[in-house]
Amino acid sequence: MKLYFLLFLIVFNFKNTHAQSAKMDTRKLLEFYETQRYGDAARYLQSIYPEDTGDVKVLTKIAYCNMMAGKLPEAEKNYLKAYAIQPDNLPILFSLAHINSRRGNIVNAKSYLQTIIGLDSLNFNAYKQLAAYENKPESKVNLLKKANSLNNADPDTAYDLAMAYHALKQYQPAYEVLKTAIASDPENYTLQQAQLSVSNQLGKYQEVVDTGEKLVKNNTDPNIINEMGKAYFYLKEYQKCADAYKMLEELGIQNEGTLYYIALSYRELKDDDKAALYAQKTIDEAISDYTPIYYATLAGIYENKNQFNDALEAYKRGLTFGNNTLIYYRLGLLYDLHIKQPKNALTYYHLYLKNKPEQEKEKEQIAYAKARIASLSGVKQTR
């Protein structure tokens, strides 16, 4: 009923304003709005008003309907006509910024927002939206600070500003921004969760635990548990720290850091067996599946520079992170063609084939390795 009344007022006002120049079926237009058939509404309005109309209300109404229908080029065309007539009209400028943002033209979107600020230096929404397009951390902070100063209770702005401060390692300002916003909305769990990380950075560990324990009753978010785990550790509540991070492990979302804290906690609890177990898990987690490939790449660079001993060391270092057919093959080539140690070359050619390289993908390498094994088998190692 409320929506119907609002739509009726819009159409009634629009009809009264333009009754002298066109006959409009109010009921039909209202039906288009109610059923969200904005494309039909735009076509209907265009059918009863001349294309060259200079009436800003008509132009913006048609533009709005096209924008809501997703016809952004048509919407922009009509808004630009209206903008040419009223260049200081803030709603038109916001609409143009919105359309350009949706179309990916960030330069134009920022330009319209800057124009708004030039007309209204206290426009909260313009600063807030402009900050979203800013990539430079310091500039982003300055825009968000201005928006926050105009409305420090807005949760989205407070959150964005706090995160921008956090990225710059300015934890105290981030804490104060969140504290003010939370005071205006004590049940905003998003803001409270954001404050956990900042509080940990500031050493407010008991506050993290108190807030975290309240939050997990409503939402067992892994980020909350992660922050609580850190706080427990620094409060020397090592069993609680280990238990918190083991919850993440059970969920399959452990990482190098969480496993490391478990290892340290068990060490402090004098449980050396579990400490050793989690120390090894930490090491395993820290090793990327791509680490051998990285070393192979480094070794290849050394080969290009004819630094064969460095290449050899890099290849072998890569193998400490697991078997890798590429490295075995490259070591075979290195010993065979550059270091001239046939016995070692044979060893690595055999290891290459033993580790079952992909038959189709590596058929040329497989054939070459087999040929070299046959050729080198009777050759004594030379130094």
Results as ranks from 00 to 15, higher is better:
K340F: 11
A132H: 03
I301S: 04
Y348F: 12
E74P: 07
V216Q: 04
Q280D: 04
T382D: 06
C241D: 01
Y328C: 06
N255Y: 03
N219D: 14
R330C: 12
N219L: 08
L331W: 01
F124I: 02
L150P: 14
Y261W: 10
T17M: 06
K169M: 09
S197R: 08
K2H: 14
N226P: 05
N142G: 01
E237F: 05
Y368M: 00
K61Y: 12
T325Y: 01
Q280H: 09
A126D: 02
N223Y: 15
Q172R: 10
N16C: 04
T220M: 15
P186M: 07
Y165Q: 01
Q195S: 14
N255I: 06
N255E: 03
A84N: 10
N226D: 11
A19I: 15
P222I: 12
D210V: 11
N188V: 13
L248A: 13
Y44A: 06
L326Q: 04
P73C: 07
A279V: 13
S377H: 08
N135D: 08
K204F: 11
Q206M: 11
L353N: 05
T17L: 11
N355Y: 09
K169R: 08
E358S: 00
A194F: 11
Y278A: 07
L298T: 13
A164H: 10
E51V: 15
L96E: 01
A153Q: 09
L277G: 06
Y335S: 07
A194W: 09
V177L: 14
I182F: 13
L6K: 00
S149D: 14
P292F: 12
Y189E: 15
T325W: 01
L9N: 10
Q359F: 02
T258N: 12
S288A: 15
Y348E: 00
I224R: 04
V208Y: 04
A314G: 06
A244H: 04
E360N: 00
R383L: 14
I287M: 06
N125K: 00
A174D: 01
V198I: 15
T35N: 07
P87Y: 02
P186N: 04
L353Y: 05
L161Y: 08
M68C: 04
A242N: 05
D160Y: 02
A42Y: 02
S375M: 13
K146Q: 15
I339W: 00
K61A: 15
K23Y: 10
Y302Q: 10
Y348L: 05
L72Y: 13
A109V: 02
Q129G: 05
D310P: 12
Q201W: 04
E138H: 06
A19P: 13
K246P: 12
F94P: 09
Y232Q: 09
D273K: 13
Q46N: 10
D210W: 05
K236L: 02
I92H: 03
L178E: 06
I92K: 04
N148V: 04
E313M: 13
Q193C: 12
F14T: 03
G257D: 09
K145I: 12
Y133C: 07
M67I: 00
P91R: 08
L29K: 09
N304A: 13
L269Y: 12
A147S: 07
P137N: 02
F5T: 02
N188G: 13
L45N: 10
Y205L: 01
K380E: 09
S101T: 11
E303T: 11
Q341L: 14
L80V: 15
D336W: 07
G54S: 15
N255R: 03
G332F: 07
K305P: 00
